[in-house]
Write a protein that binds this DNA or RNA. Sequence first.
DNA 1: TCAACGCTGTACCGGTCGGTACAGTCAGTT
DNA 2: AACTGACTGTACCGACCGGTACAGCGTTGA
Lengths: 187, 187
Amino acid sequence: MPRTIHERADTLPALGELFREHGYEGTSLALISAKTGLGKGSLYHFFPGGKEEMAAAVLAHIDEWFERQVFKPLREGEDARAAIHAMFRTVDEYFRSGRRVCLVGAFALGGVRGRYAERINQYFSVWIEELASALRRAGTPRGRARASAEDAIAMIQGALVAARALDDAALFRRALKRAEARLTAQA
Amino acid sequence: MPRTIHERADTLPALGELFREHGYEGTSLALISAKTGLGKGSLYHFFPGGKEEMAAAVLAHIDEWFERQVFKPLREGEDARAAIHAMFRTVDEYFRSGRRVCLVGAFALGGVRGRYAERINQYFSVWIEELASALRRAGTPRGRARASAEDAIAMIQGALVAARALDDAALFRRALKRAEARLTAQA
DNA sequence: TCAACGCTGTACCGGTCGGTACAGTCAGTT
DNA sequence: AACTGACTGTACCGACCGGTACAGCGTTGA
C-alpha cells in the first residue's frame, strides 16, 4: 500500500476549474501550485508530462464523467424521452446554468485546439451520436435525428457563450428549455 | 502631415487573426512583431497601452465592422426578412463557415472576459436586440421575437464551437440554415 | 531495524514574457 | 539648411514562465 497523502485524481477538479477560468496558457504552474496546495515536486511526481499532461488528464476526467452521467444514460435508458430530459437537467447542473464554462468547447476555440484535437473531436461526436440515437428510439425520423442532435449540442455550447458574455444565467436556462422543446416536439 | 509608413489601423486585421488563433495569453509580443513586421518600438508607438490596448482596439474594430455590416442593415433594411437573410449570408462569410473563430465569443469564454466584459456584453446584446427588432418588423409576435433572436445568436456561436471541435465546416452551414429556417418559419 | 518507496519542499535552470528607454532615421515644414 | 515629429530598431529590464534536480521526509513491508 502506498501511503497516499494526496492522489493524482484529487487534483483534477481543481485543475479543471483553473483551466476553465484562465484557459490553458493563462494557467501557470504557480497558480496550480497555489490552488492545489501542492509544490512543483508533487505536481511533477503526479504529472511527469507537466502542464500538458495535467490538461490531458482533466479532459480524460471530464470525458469519463460525461460518459457515466450523460452518454451512458442516453444509450441505455429504456425510456428514451426520459433519458433526453434527464440529459438537459444534468447539463444545466453541470454547467451551473451557464456560470461554468465547457472546457472542451473552450479548448476547441482556443490555441490548444490542435494539441487535444482528437479528444475534443471525440467528446462532441460521441455526444451528438448518442443523442441522435436516443432521438431515433424516441420516434424522431431517422433523417432528422442527426441534424436535431447537432442542433441541440450546438445550442448548449452557444448558450454557454452567450450566457457568459451577457452574464445571464436565465438566458442559459431559457435556451436549454427551447432546445429541449424543439427535440421533443418532433419526436 | 505625418509621413505615415504604417498606420495603426493597418495592424488590426493581423492582430485579430493572432488573437483568434492563439487567444489573448497565447499571443506574445514576439508573435505580434513577427506577424505585423513591426518592432516593439513601433508597436508601442501605436499602442502605448501594450497588448491590452491592442486587444481592445481589435474588439473595437470588430464592433465597427459588425455595426456597419450586420447591425445597421438589420436596423435600416426596408425588407426585414431580406435583411435577416442577408445577415446569415454575411455571418457565414465572416466566420468562413466555421473555420474562423468569433473573437468576442472566445474572449467571453476565456480568462480575459473580465477585462473586456463591457464590450463583450455590448456586442451580444446589440446583436440580439437588432435581430429581435427586425424579427418583429418581419411579423414575429412580440413575445417570441426576443427569444428567437437569442436562439439564433446562441446557435451561431454554438455552431462555431462545434464546427471547430469537429473540424467540419459543413456542420456550421447546416446549423446556420436550420437557424434561419426556424426564424423565417414563424415570421 | 532498515531498506524501499511514495511523496514533498526548495533551489535552481535557461528562456521568454510584457514593457521601457532611447538614439537614429527620414519626410515634410519653415 | 535647420528643425520637427512620426516612426523604427535595438538593447535592456525585472518578473515570471515551465521544467529539472535532488535531498529529505514519513510509512510501509521485510
